[in-house]
């Protein structure tokens, strides 16, 4: 039998025709290129740690057929990452690890023209609570003593944080407002630097995620005074919450995976499957416990609703922050 060009084409076409729906049925959508895994913060911070942890779990268990390529795009407090996703040329292969600048940066920098409601929810990996810390040498052991001390120093009490409009400054502003505190606030460029300067007693108190302060807490250097979570945290059962103290305020840093706007439903389903597996896996559950993150599983609809609530909340918190200072 002589293989003519036409016959060859015909064969190829029929093979493709037969093979195509089968592949589609078996696996649904799968990535065709390496996946752009954008991190909304610089190297070494909390978001970066989580992103690299997740990437490692995915790689170690061979969960995707194409690799995740993590890239730090922390510029402009996450604006760089948001723009990167908004203008992604290939939305199906572009995902991002977020923190709360996901909400605050589009509000603070309206010129960017970012509407996060256009982004594609993938998986909520957990939320990171905040805790008020002082150094053990300060002699302060309860929140009431802290309030008394700050009021006594009348504006000379120094706290460090990651900058105006950042998560901890929102918490500090809410706390100062509720208890009528005057605080001298020094911005740093990362939670790690803040914790270090509390350890060195350059500053007097901080609002840090437990993960950032854990090492010093376990060594007995840091004393936790107040948690800004809804309920007491399992790892810190003796630390009261602000809610218990009679002020309805809680605040968390969101650790979520988000897809680029315009991602196809099939691709989103694929990533939800992958990161859903990571979320349920022993590695991630162990991380949640060890670093005191709270689980907050949500489906797509719930996430969208959560986003609009968060955007509204942050709009209020930020305008209070700007009005107050």
């Amino acid at each position: 039998m002589k293989l003519t060009k036409r016959m060859f084409l015909g064969l190829a076409a029929s093979t493709a025709f037969v093979a195509m729906p089968l592949a589609a049925l078996a696996d649904g959508w799968t990535p065709k290129r390496p996946i752009d895994f954008t991190i909304m913060a610089g190297a070494g911070g909390g978001a970066d740690q989580i992103a690299r942890f997740v990437q490692s779990v995915v790689e170690a268990n061979d969960m995707t057929n194409r690799p995740l390529i993590p890239t730090n795009r922390g510029g402009g407090s996450g604006a760089e990452a948001l723009l990167h996703l908004k203008d992604a040329r290939d939305a199906d292969h572009t995902i991002m690890v977020t923190l709360n600048s996901f909400y605050t940066t589009p509000i603070r920098q309206e010129g960017l023209g970012i509407d996060i409601e256009t982004f594609t929810p993938i998986t909520m990996m957990g939320v990171d609570p905040f805790v008020l810390w002082v150094h053990k040498d300060s002699g302060i052991t309860t929140f009431e003593e802290y309030v008394a001390k700050v009021q006594e120093m009348d504006g000379d009490f120094v706290m460090g944080g990651t900058g105006s409009g950042q998560e901890d400054s929102i918490v500090i502003a809410a706390m100062s407002d509720a208890y009528d505190l005057k605080i001298k606030y020094i911005p740093y460029d990362g939670g790690g630097a803040v914790a270090k300067d509390l350890a060195g007693k350059q500053i007097m108190a901080t609002v840090n995620n437990p993960a950032e302060a854990k090492g010093f807490y376990e060594a007995g250097e840091f004393v936790p005074l107040l948690a800004f979570s809804d309920e007491r945290m399992p790892a810190y059962p003796d630390v009261p919450t602000m809610k218990e103290k009679g002020h309805d305020f809680s605040y968390y840093n969101q650790r979520a995976i988000v897809g680029a706007p315009g991602m196809s439903a099939e691709a989103a389903a694929y990533y939800r499957e992958v990161f859903g597996k990571v979320y349920k896996g022993a590695d991630w559950q162990g991380y949640l416990t060890a670093e005191s993150l709270s689980p907050l599983p949500m489906d797509e609809g719930e996430t969208r609703a959560y986003w609009s609530v968060q955007v509204e909340n942050h709009r209020k918190l930020l305008s209070a922050l700007e009005g107050g200072s």
């Binding site: 402009g76 407090s77 604006a79 920098q109 900058g163 105006s164 409009g165 740093y188």
Partner: peptide
């Protein structure tokens, strides 16, 4: 980005 003011 200016860390101190939190503005680009």
């Amino acid at each position: 980005f200016d860390t101190i003011s939190g503005e680009p």
